[in-house]
Amino acid sequence: MRFIRKRPYILFILPGFILYTAFVIYPLFSAMSISLYEWTGIGPKKFVGLANFVTLFFNPRISEMFWNALKNNFFYVLAELGIIMPLQILLAYLIFLRIKGYRIFQTLIFLPCVISTAVIGFFIMIVFDPNFGILNSLLKSIGLGQFQSGWFGDPDLAFPLFIVVATWVGIGYGMMLFIANLKGIPEQIIEASIIDGAGGVQRFFRVILPQLWPSLTNIIVLDTIWGLTIFDIPFIIGGPQGGVNNSLDFMNIFFYRYAFGNSYGGETAMGFGASISVVLFGLVLIVSIIQIKFLRNIRVEY
């Protein structure tokens, strides 16, 4: 008892630790061991050592897909941190400032996050379908028929367009987190800056942003993890094959395609699929540990 009384945190952490370890960590790690086997998902397993990893890196057809998916993940993370996150901060700040109509904006910007992915997929179809979608019909009816496009069917256009859609769907999530954090900034600090005569933009960079920094670093870590493990939106747009010419292929879709086949069935290779997710896991872990170490050491001067 004394042991625990000296370490009260044990009682706080233990229930969660047990639950989390049993239902999240244990299943995932026991499934990771499958990566050393050749296994279709059912039936006997055959131990193959590191053969799955060799295939992943050295089979020309497969490794091409692997690097392509990784590249897409990388660019998506860049877009998240470089485009989506600044927009989220901006929106959160505007709502925090209570610009005209902020309540309704907050609700409507957030709404796409709440709509189930199946319905989002449906929206994407009625807007972007090249044959009867709203966008092409609209372009035609206003006499801009030459700008009609295959949209997601055009491998060069698919990725940028995906970024736009992903932004539209996901922007409200981070925005909410930033709003909650902005509300935590003591008012005196802001009032002091007003007395100093700082203008809107200046105030944002000199007062608000440094105050936001601690939570910002954490959201960078989360965004990176999410960016590297993204699945839902590219899946509903590009399907298990990862879009035309793998333009919307991501690591988790690549994993899914091998581990579970595609709609209508298809052939599966659970063991190989597991090896993909092991590589992905290693990558995410390393990146996030570096980020956590690195970002914690940065202090914003002001």
């Binding site: 989390y20 995932l28 499934a31 493990t229 994993f255 579970f260 699929g273 996030s288």
Partner: peptide, 18 residues
Amino acid sequence: TYFLLGLMFPIQLGILPI
């Protein structure tokens, strides 16, 4: 960090043991 690990996997992977 340990409590973050759960975000780094596709949940489908561990479905059989669960």
